[in-house]
Amino acid sequence: MCTYLTVKADMEGSGKGAQGWFPVTDASVYVDHPVHAPFGHTVNVDFLNPALGAGARVAVELTEESARALAGALLAALDAAPPGLASASATPPPGH
């Protein structure tokens, strides 16, 4: 099926796409047909910078199990680090 449903989140960080590194401003998460992964449906995650065009995109297509494992791994890594260490507020922007 084409679920059409897309969950979006604002992002601060960087990603490495086909043209090299770029600032990531948005993420899209959706369950739909993959382009490449050999499954009927996958959890697709796009890290994007729409201001830089459609090619500013890092894409992954994961099985449900993989996506849940990734979500758990992200939380586990954060839990293992000092609280706030990777927070945007921990590193003042340039000029401050």
Binding site: Y4, D26, S28, D46, P50, A54, R57
Partner: peptide, 17 residues
């Protein structure tokens, strides 16, 4: 209109979003 010259999968992701 949204993604002239982009690869089809990148264009689809942008339009979908």
């Amino acid at each position: 209109r949204e993604a002239p010259g982009a690869s089809p999968d990148d264009a689809a992701a942008l339009v979908r979003a």
